[in-house]
Amino acid sequence: MGEDEIEAGHRQELRRGTVGLACLLRLRTPDYGYALLESLGADGIDVDANTLYPLLRRLEKQGLVTSEWSTGEARPRKFYRTSHEGDRLARVLTDDWHRLDAALRGLIERGES
């Protein structure tokens, strides 16, 4: 395994948990899969389509997002929206994120001083 592969593996590991939270936060405004993929990318959250689509399906199965088919456009599209339960989880995860950020900041500063 090359150095690049190791680095890529760790970066992917680090990002993995954030994608679910990003989806829950972003889907407080309803949207469909491809638009979500684009807008997350534009917001600086790089996520692979092969990760995102199955993730949406899982979130729906867990009741964290709800969905509705919109037939008004060129092709039927499934619009997802964060549910009550999903909103509650997003707040818990956000708190965790802040805690982790603070902890890592502490470690980084201590390393620099």
Binding site: Y32, G33, Y34, Y53, A74, R77, K78
Partner: peptide, 14 residues
């Protein structure tokens, strides 16, 4: 099937 059709259609359009 519908979900996948949407995904494929949107990806091709892009």
């Amino acid at each position: 099937r519908s979900e996948l059709a949407e995904r494929i259609g949107d990806s091709i359009d892009a």
